[in-house]
Design a protein around this nucleic acid. Structure first.
Lengths: 229, 229
DNA sequence: GCAAATCCGTTGTATTTCCAACAGAAAGGC
DNA sequence: GCCTTTCTGTTGGAAATACAACGGATTTGC
């Protein structure tokens, strides 16, 4: 069995899996048993490598065990749209793995050397499902609900018409999520512009104006929002 | 029990539920048993009434048994963003019902007199889950995956910079979904503009140009795309 | 350490969108 | 039937964005 061959490799990532939403509420031995049951495989990617690409038919759900991924899309003319950044422990591809005849519509790129664990969703629906599998399904449901909210949130941000509205909305959400007016974002300027769907230079100009107006300050990816009361 | 009181009412909608993704693969008696187990309730709304609104904490997953709903959001100045239209048999609110401390971020409005069935997700995770419940959970997973793909698709469309790109992308997707170059869309002009995140008048102008260029023709909500080979 | 590449902020111009207003067509209410 | 409301398409001016190009700062690769 593949899992037994790669058993040592998977074991290395149990400490990561322990903190993921998918394996929430499981101890190490339960995680190991789940991984075996799911016939989970590990695959490594070098920085810059494509994990999967637009048009591909995805059959497995991915969990990022190490590294960083970017979910994005380039059109024929090179215009890039950034959908999201995936950090360690996050799940990706599940919406398309669940429906095998729906092609993936984005590219997934490794921003750093990365390790992806993956399994086929059919193992979740085996007729002899035990308590562990039931837990996995419930966790996956919560995980998909969270991603659903994230996508809805992004739609809300992109629905704004002006660059400034998109920026203030995005930064407000990030600040709330961080629980502080001082926080860091996971994008550089070009990526942020591609995430918000605006021109980078115009966005830089708008950020500069907002800084001059005393709304915020920033250095690289670290931002501070100021309350204007 | 509420269900017994409203038993007759729920039974009226079994023919609708039979065709929903949530109850796929179940016969009428199984659907009835599931509805009882989920403690499902029916609620009616008049045309124009608010089903739920932004900021509210949702505790139940909704299924539209009759009528039409619009999921949208208005900002303080009345700018409207249309997220999606919900037709009979579709599920809504599940992403926020799964996480009770996350407030709903949209408004749900009844476009016609509507009937909404709802249940609390905790019934899906009861420890004494039977085969039917397992089926419901699996169906809900597929349903959420489909919604996930829909949201990702909408993000793709909104990521385009120009009105024309958004229109061609949206109409292409609708045409592919309908399996024909002749199809109808579920929005009037204002709703379509709010869905694409553009100005209505500019969108009308762009549609007119595209018609003059021979790319398409339309009458109300019915469109025909022409292959330019 | 140095060279190359990338990232960031700025500017000016061209393009596109937004906004307000209007008129005709269609739909709905009574 | 008629009146009212909504919907659609069009226009012109105001505003915002996209695009191209640049210099300086920072990072990366060797």
């Amino acid at each position: 069995m593949y899992f037994q061959q790669k058993g040592k490799k998977l074991k290395e990532y149990i400490s990561v899996l322990r903190q993921t939403a998918l394996f929430a509420g499981m101890d190490d031995s339960e995680i190991e048993a789940s991984a075996a049951r799911l016939n989970m495989r590990a695959q490594t990617y070098e920085r810059g490598e494509t994990v999967c690409h637009s048009g591909q038919f995805i059959r497995a759900i991915g969990i990022l065990a190490a590294g960083q991924l970017m979910i994005q899309k380039d059109d024929y003319w090179g215009n890039r749209s950034v959908v999201n950044r995936i950090g360690e422990g996050e799940v990706f591809g599940e919406a398309f793995a669940m429906q095998e005849d729906e092609p993936f519509i984005h590219d997934v790129i490794a921003l750093e050397d990365s390790v992806v664990l993956s399994f086929r969703p059919e193992h979740l629906f085996a007729p002899d499902a035990d308590k562990l599998t039931k837990r996995l399904v419930q966790n996956l449901l919560c995980s998909m609900a969270a991603k659903n909210r994230m996508l809805a949130q992004k739609i809300d941000i992109m629905a704004h018409r002006t660059t400034r509205e998109k920026l203030t909305d995005y930064l407000s959400v990030q600040s709330r999520r961080a629980g502080s007016a001082h926080f860091s974002i996971p994008f550089d300027r070009q990526q942020l512009a591609d995430y918000l769907g605006v021109d980078r230079s115009a966005m830089c100009t708008e950020l500069g104006k907002m800084r001059d107006e005393g709304l915020l300050s920033f250095h690289k990816c670290v931002f501070d929002l100021y309350d204007i009361a």
